[in-house]
């Protein structure tokens, strides 16, 4: 703040009142963020305290007779191979989603940017599933992929491809693949990032490439793809984080089964929590560990973001 702003009388503001103003600015700013901080305190800080507190107890969902459990719950979680497996599944599923996004999502965006008759229709078609409730998509596909009466197998049988009609959701190996492949229907958001980033690409670079005789294939993968670095980064990080938030796609398609093969961490927690007489202390311990993993990923992302901002500033 400029210390010598003339006030109405033409005098400059004395030091003392400058400090008073600084103090006032702090108070005003905290009034602005007060609603946010109160939600944060009640729902996030208290939740954290609650989770950590409960994770050292044995208790049920009525939170009635809690007994001290020491670190026993953590030991049990860390000894449960299904816990590791569910986190690993999260990572594999997000890897699958990321792969689909940066291949099919990217290709579709570039091809749709060729603007042909009907391209707006196709854009809508590819995009709308991302807006539908995940529960709806999962329910529809759980019926379509059903073994005996599911539409997909009926379609394959009608084509005479009976040998391809498989137990898509009840064979452990196939179920794993099926739930990943359904991720294809969620390319809407990657498409959005790509098309936003595509508009920032310098057209003269592309024109030069065309003059040099580069075909669509070369332009796409050797020029456009590396230029969309920002979109790739955003997609990778947000997909990774959202995989820890994913729940209904798998819950309503396989429920984590068969034989816990498609169990991601949210399903692991949910199934345990829903079990009769579940030890909430155990669920809290597992939740705390999961939270630490998700926050660690977010922390790395934040560091990248702050670093990127600094680099951009020094370049400017």
């Amino acid at each position: 703040m400029n210390p010598s702003i003339p006030v109405d009388s033409g005098k400059t503001i004395p030091i003392k009142s400058r400090q008073a103003r600084k103090w006032k600015e702090n108070v005003t700013a905290y009034l602005f963020i007060a609603p946010l901080l109160s939600i944060f305190a009640v729902f996030i800080l208290y939740s954290l305290y609650f989770l950590i507190h409960t994770s050292f107890q044995n208790t049920d969902i009525s939170f009635g007779k809690a007994t001290d459990a020491g670190t026993n719950n953590y030991r049990l979680v860390l000894e449960d191979s299904h816990f590791y497996f569910s986190v690993l599944n999260n990572l594999i599923f997000s890897a699958g989603n990321i792969f689909i996004s940066i291949t099919i999502g990217f290709i579709v965006t570039v091809f749709l940017s060729l603007k042909f008759r009907g391209s707006r229709f196709f854009h809508a078609l590819f995009f709308i599933p991302a807006m539908l409730p995940g529960a709806l998509i999962a329910t529809v596909f759980s019926m379509i992929l059903e073994y005996r009466f599911g539409a997909w197998n009926e379609f394959l049988r009608a084509l005479g491809l009976d040998f391809l009609a498989k137990q898509w959701l009840s064979d452990p190996h196939l179920a794993y693949m099926s739930v990943i492949v359904i991720g294809v229907y969620l390319i809407g958001f990657p498409m959005m990032y790509y098309s936003a980033d595509l508009t920032t690409v310098n057209t003269s670079v592309l024109e030069a490439a065309v003059l040099d005789g580069a075909g669509l294939n070369r332009i796409m993968w050797n020029i456009v793809f590396p230029l969309l670095k920002n979109a790739h980064k955003t997609i990778i990080i947000s997909t990774l984080l959202s995989s820890f938030r994913e729940f209904e796609r798998i819950y309503l398609m396989t429920g984590g089964g068969p034989a816990q093969s498609t169990e991601i961490s949210s399903i692991y927690l949910f199934n345990y929590f829903r079990g009769a007489g579940a030890n909430i202390g155990y669920v809290s311990a597992a939740s705390t560990l999961l939270l630490i993993i998700a926050l660690a990923i977010s922390f790395i992302q934040l560091r990248m973001y702050v670093k990127g901002k600094k680099e951009r500033k020094s370049a400017a």
Binding site: I44, S47, F50, L51, L269, L291
Partner: peptide, 20 residues
């Protein structure tokens, strides 16, 4: 800190939210 909260998985919040 507020930005970090973007990463909180909803399932983790279920039990404490239930209580609150």
């Amino acid at each position: 800190i507020i930005l970090m909260c973007l990463a909180i998985p909803a399932i983790v919040a279920v039990i404490p939210f239930f209580f609150i």
